[in-house]
Write a protein that binds this DNA or RNA. Structure first.
Length: 627
RNA sequence: GCCAGCGUAGCUCAGCAGGUAGAGCUACUGAUUUGUAAUCAGUGGGUCGGGGGUUCGAGUCCCUCCGCUGGCUCCA
């Protein structure tokens, strides 16, 4: 940062126009004009590199100014952004941050000082009368210090700070029993719900220990689904054909559920103006760190969810009360969160992920609760489709909980299991109610999948309105819902669930509709090549043919290792009687006609999407992605 | 981001008294034509995560960067 300090008899300025980096918020903070007698005027320009340690730069500037004001015996200071001091300017965001930091720091360090700040990003006219004594003109270059104390909290949002001071009360509510708030959660008889106990401990204690990596990481690679990509930022994965197939199927399944329910599918940009006033204040309310990128001088952040894109659409929509409830839906390819590197964990926690994001506008609390319940039902259906068990957590602001007991009871009974309920005295976040489905993994850790929330903040922030039956504009309530949770995380949960099965000595398997290879034909010898090819064309599912020159035993072993649900062995006997020898994952070997097999498969596929085999149909033609 | 551990062939791993790298699987070639979880033989394959240093000599010791995993923290 460059600073030019001038001790002036008098100083005044007024805004004459906007530059390309003007921010309306600056005028609120600094005003569009000002004048002062007898002051130290600090012209300053933030430079590239200052962002490495904003606090250190600000601190040095403040020290410099304080030293000089005490030497000069003046109590008036003007903080004046003046780009012309440098030809290597920082981004506007950093500059504003520095100005704010310097401004507030000056005031807090010396309460007697009267500090005036001029707005950043505007053309300004100024008049100055320099005193001209030896100390009255001083120019300095300030560089950030590096090393031990780096500016860690710099990007911390208000929500992250708030969360740290959050105090919660935990209770358990069981289904079916009226107003069955079981006092403190510790007293709940957890014997029948060991996973709920794990969730409670996980949430309440905040401590989680494990001496081993999560098993899904090995599985995601061994099954050739997903892998790390060293050529990208950590937490950005590559998807191999089998993984990509599962992902696409899962996405299609969730999207179908949502659009059938009435979600109107849209697509919105993945990056947004960092200085957009509405978005900026929203960022402050969401506890996530962003990727920031530059386009010319402007900074953009990559979205952490589809929220803003949809809010901006909803802001522009003409909505009458007759249109409500109104639902916008997007499957985010992708959402980005710059998680701290130590927070990343396989498919459980990524920096780039895919998530179904549904936003529902409701005209009143009754309608909001009605849709909330329907969305919870959808989430339950979704978990069943993925074959996942889950534990329910409901987080409520106490006022809302007290006023809506029947609603909460209804939610719990629909979920059909006792739920962990977290109660907050005050509303720290943008929602008053949030329901989550948590998955408990092989290491007893919890991960949130589906979630539905009632947002009471963002319609106002984004000026989303509808017209009521009297012709007046009203703010709707807003439901956020991620019916399945992140798709990546769904795969994590499915793999962890299989790791748990294997731990108990059972065979792992994907839900049939998601198995990358659903059937494999194995010939007893090459002689039955043509028979295999014939069967192959009669089965319209993801079937492949192991035509490699290796033993049959080996082929069966490898098909088992790939979790293939149906292994069809074809030799002389089958060629003779036209039946199939069907080996399934329960260990059974059945003699079946093709029609019988097809009927069985059909019943397992109902209501689920289908996509073709994403690999060569002949196993001998198939490259290996991971050892 | 901080602290700790780890990084050797495509995969899983051995080698650590500092002396110039090894096994199994895979791949490739050949033999074999097989009845429900591994047929036999042969041949390839490595800037020991990157960079720097100590040493006559470094996979091995030191520094640094990158990545992964665990903890803190955080979350879809």
């Amino acid at each position: 940062m460059r600073i030019l300090l001038i001790h002036a008899n008098s100083f005044s300025f007024h805004v004459t126009g906007e530059t390309s980096v003007a921010l309306p918020a600056e005028l609120d903070k600094a005003g569009s004009e000002g004048n002062v007698d007898e002051a130290l005027v600090a012209f300053m320009a933030a430079e590239k590199g200052d962002d490495k340690n904003i606090a250190s730069v600000a601190d040095q500037v403040v020290q410099e100014i304080l030293r000089l004001t005490s030497q000069l015996g003046t109590q008036n200071v003007v903080v004046y952004p003046y780009a012309h001091l440098s030809s290597l300017l920082s981004s506007p965001r950093v500059a504003v941050k520095l100005l704010d930091e310097i401004y507030s720091c000056l005031k807090s360090k010396n309460e007697l000082l009267v500090v005036m700040r001029a707005p950043f990003g505007y053309y300004k006219a100024f008049e100055i009368s320099c005193k001209g004594h030896p100390l009255s003109e001083l120019a300095k270059t300030i560089t950030p210090t590096t090393g031990a104390e780096k500016e860690g909290a710099e990007e911390e949002s208000e929500a992250i700070k708030a969360e740290k001071s959050l105090e919660s009360e935990w209770v358990i509510m069981a289904p079916g029993e009226k107003s069955a708030y079981y006092g403190p959660a510790e007293d709940f008889p957890f014997k029948k719900r060991p996973n709920l106990k794990k969730l409670f401990k996980y949430e309440e204690s905040g401590t989680r220990t494990s001496d081993q990596p999560p098993p899904h990481i090995e599985l995601m690679r061994r099954m050739e689904l997903v892998d790390y990509e060293p050529g990208s930022d950590p937490g950005n994965f590559r998807w191999y054909p089998k993984g990509q197939l599962i992902k696409r199927l899962a996405e299609t399944y969730v999207s179908n559920l949502i659009t059938q329910y009435g979600g109107m599918q849209v697509e919105t940009p993945i990056m947004y103006d960092y200085q957009h006033p509405k978005l900026h204040s929203y960022l402050q309310r969401f506890p996530a760190r962003q990727y920031v990128l530059l386009s010319d001088e402007k900074e953009y952040f990559l979205r952490f969810a589809a929220c803003f894109g949809q809010y901006l659409i909803q802001h522009d929509m003409q909505i009458s009360h007759n249109h409500l409830p109104s639902k916008l839906y997007e499957l985010t390819h992708y959402s980005f969160r710059r998680e701290q590197s130590g927070e990343l964990a396989g498919l459980k926690r990524l920096r780039t992920f895919t998530m179904p994001d549904l936003h529902t506008l409701a005209k009143d609390v009754e309608q909001a609760k009605e849709e909330f319940v329907r969305q919870v039902d959808l989430a339950i259906q979704c978990m069943e489709g993925f074959g996942l068990d889950f534990e329910v957590a409901i987080r409520l602001v106490k006022d809302f909980a007290d006023g809506n007991k029947a609603f909460v009871e209804d939610l719990v009974s629909r979920c059909g299991r006792p739920a962990l309920i977290e109660l907050w005295e005050e509303r720290f976040f943008y929602f008053v109610a949030k329901l989550e489905f948590n998955f408990i993994d092989a290491l007893d850790k919890a991960a949130c999948l589906s979630t539905v929330q009632i947002d009471v903040e963002n319609p106002q922030r984004f000026d989303i309105t509808y017209v009521d039956d009297k012709g007046n504009k009203q703010y709707p309530l807003l439901l956020h819902a991620s019916i399945s949770g992140s798709i990546d995380r769904v795969l994590y949960a499915m793999l962890e669930a299989q790791a748990l099965r294997m731990k108990k000595g059972k065979k792992a398997q994907f839900p049939f509709w998601l198995a990358p290879v659903q059937l494999r034909i194995i010939p007893v010898s090459e002689k039955f090549d043509q028979n295999c090819k014939d069967v192959f064309t009669k089965i319209p599912y993801r079937i492949d043919y192991d035509d490699r020159d290796i033993s049959m035993g080996r082929k069966i072993r490898e098909a088992e290792k790939e979790w293939v649900p149906y292994i069809l062995v074809l030799g002389a006997k089958e060629a003779a009687d036209g039946h199939l020898s069907v080996r399934t994952r329960d260990g059974a070997q059945r003699k079946m006609a093709i029609s019988e097999l097809l009927a069985e498969i059909e019943s397992r596929m109902t209501g689920k999407p289908f996509l073709d085999l994403p690999l060569p149909k002949y196993v001998s033609r198939r490259p290996i992605f991971i050892g």
